[in-house]
């Protein structure tokens, strides 16, 4: 059993990212004692609830300069938490923030680093992970040769545990705050309520088969009914129909939602690399030989423009 595990609890605007609970859950399974670190301008009030997910102690680094994320500032805070908690393992979620923070902190604290882990275990006293390589054509088992280890965990790799009523003890962390060289001056938010493909339980993805950007409303409507996110294939993004943030696949995001619905997506190997770990895959495509059907649990062959209105309506009825 691993000793102490420190989880970086990611928050923006005082809201803890869902994937943090997944990391806390996995940490509780792997370690003897779970600590978390929260970094922000005023985060103490959200610290106790991390106990609901298994954290015993939450190290809070509060400073006005932590209001917005910065690689340098947050790396200093995480490093201070590593000094305070002396963990065997540091867990960070592989989000835009986590991917930016983790290498900086690992380099500073001279930790072994495992990136974008799909699984993470302790085997014979060493941390071992499964990760994607070569655009998802290879799944590699990689082992950290020493401790402590810093691992970034792919969102949705592990389920979030059911919350308990336990609360965490809070310890404030003193961080020597210095002027940062790269400073976030503005955060531009997308349209209110738009879900990110990496965090949504349901993702509905549109591809070249949609024929034009106007037809993305078919995807948006179904995603809306399911409370899911809108994804896109590389072809749709490269055609300029939709922003790269929506792209699923090798040059986009790798995701593991509960339900993935691919519409007019042929299923190039680079696309499959990004979604093959979804729990349930539905494909709609007019080409019965499209590669997407080779991994879909439920495939519907036919004209998506006829199928989508029916599918959206039937799912609406099924959820009522």
């Amino acid at each position: 059993m691993a000793g102490r595990i420190l989880v970086f609890a990611e928050q923006r605007d005082g809201k803890v990212r869902k994937s943090t609970f997944e990391a806390l859950g996995r940490a509780a399974e792997l370690g003897d004692e779970v600590h978390a670190v929260l970094v922000g301008s005023a985060v103490a009030q959200i610290a106790p609830m991390l106990g609901n997910y298994g954290a015993k102690v939450v190290h809070c680094a509060e400073d006005p300069s932590f209001e917005l994320y910065s690689g340098e500032g947050y790396a200093a805070a995480l490093s201070a938490a590593i000094d305070a908690a002396a963990p065997d393992l540091v867990l960070v979620i592989a989000t835009a923030m986590g991917k930016d923070l983790a290498p900086r902190a690992a380099a500073r604290k001279q930790l072994c680093m495992l990136s974008d882990c799909i699984t993470l275990d302790e085997i014979g006293g060493a941390f071992e992970a499964t990760k994607s390589m070569y655009g998802g054509q290879v799944f590699a088992k990689v082992r950290a040769t020493g401790k402590p280890v810093l691992a970034t965990l792919r969102p949705s790799a592990y389920p979030a545990p059911e919350p308990s009523s336990d609360t965490a003890a809070m310890e404030s962390l003193s961080v020597a705050v210095s002027e940062v060289g790269a400073k976030v001056v503005e955060v531009l938010k997308q349209e209110e309520g738009a879900l990110d493909v990496q965090e949504a339980d349901v993702v509905v993805t549109g591809g070249r088969g949609l024929k034009s950007p106007e037809n993305f409303h078919l995807i948006e409507e179904l995603a809306g009914v399911l409370g899911g996110a809108v994804g896109a294939s590389r072809a749709a993004v490269d055609a300029g129909w939709i922003d790269h943030a929506h792209q699923v696949g090798q040059t986009g995001k790798a995701i593991s939602p509960k339900l993935y619905i691919a519409v007019g997506v042929s299923g190039a190997i680079q696309h499959l690399a990004g979604m093959r770990t979804a729990k349930c895959i539905v494909a709609v495509n007019k080409d019965a030989d499209a590669p997407i059907f080779s991994i879909a649990d439920y495939g519907i062959v036919g004209d998506l423009f006829k199928i989508m209105p029916v599918l959206t309506e039937e799912i609406r009825k099924a959820r009522d």
Partner: peptide, 30 residues
């Protein structure tokens, strides 16, 4: 700091059920 233990192709994920026909018939089944 990191060594490769093993490499393998991604786990197989077989195709499931495929439906062809009029949307009004097959979509409710799915």
């Amino acid at each position: 700091g990191v060594e490769i233990v093993s490499m393998a192709p991604p786990p197989e994920r077989g195709g499931g059920q495929k439906f062809e026909g009029e949307p009004e018939d097959v979509v409710p089944q799915v």
